[in-house]
Amino acid sequence: MLVKFFSRVNCPLCVEGLHTLKLVQEDIPFDIEVIDIELDDRIHEKYMLMIPVVELGDQVIQYGKLDYATLMEYLNEA
């Protein structure tokens, strides 16, 4: 299972969100693809006000302030 994590450099909320996602990864096996929204104009326009964003497939699981319980519940059912 591949989970996409959209973020940008110098984003404290993104650092915290990636840490939370990695905590979930300790309990559920999945790969994380970290994507810097600054490198793609289309992605930047789509997510610039939402980051960090966690996506599975084409569906946004959670964005902004990420929490362990929500991520765990969703990824456990995937």
Rank of each mutant, 00 (worst) to 15 (best):
L13N: 14
D40Y: 05
D31K: 05
H19D: 14
F30C: 03
L18R: 04
C14R: 04
E73P: 09
T20K: 04
V34Y: 00
D41H: 11
Y68P: 09
V60L: 08
G64C: 04
L66Q: 08
Y63R: 10
I43L: 15
V3G: 02
E38W: 07
K46Q: 10
F30I: 00
Q62A: 10
M50A: 13
F30H: 02
D67M: 07
T20R: 03
E73K: 15
F5Y: 01
G57P: 03
K46N: 07
K65S: 12
T70K: 13
E26L: 07
D31I: 00
E26Q: 11
A78Y: 11
E38V: 05
C11R: 04
D58V: 10
V53R: 02
F5P: 00
D36K: 02
P12H: 12
M50P: 06
M1Y: 11
K22E: 11
V34S: 04
Y74M: 11
E45V: 11
G57A: 05
V54P: 00
A78M: 14
I37W: 05
V54N: 07
A69W: 12
L39S: 11
C11S: 05
F6M: 01
Q59C: 10
V34G: 01
I43V: 09
D36I: 00
L66D: 03
H19N: 12
Y68G: 10
L2Q: 12
D40R: 08
N10T: 11
I28A: 01
D67I: 08
E16I: 10
I43E: 07
M50Q: 13
P29Y: 00
D36S: 00
V53C: 02
V15S: 10
L75D: 07
F6V: 01
E16H: 13
V34K: 04
E38D: 15
V53P: 01
V60S: 05
I43W: 03
V15Y: 09
L75I: 14
Q25V: 05
E45C: 09
L2M: 14
L66N: 09
A78S: 12
D41I: 13
I28E: 04
C14S: 08
P12C: 09
M48P: 07
F5M: 02
M72A: 12
T20Y: 02
T70V: 13
A69D: 15
F30P: 04
D36M: 01
T70L: 13
L49N: 10
V3S: 02
E45W: 09
L21E: 01
G64H: 05
V60I: 14
L23G: 08
M72F: 15
I43H: 07
H44M: 13
E26H: 08
N76S: 13
V34E: 06
V60K: 06
D41P: 12
G17Q: 01
D58Y: 10
D67A: 06
V54L: 05
L75M: 10
C11I: 08
V3H: 00
K65T: 10
C14T: 06
M50T: 10
Q59Y: 12
L23E: 15
L39I: 09
I35E: 02
M72S: 12
Q62Y: 07
S7Q: 06
A69L: 15
L18F: 00
A69C: 10
M48R: 14
V24T: 05
D40W: 03
F30L: 01
Y63P: 05
G57S: 07
L13Y: 13
L75S: 08
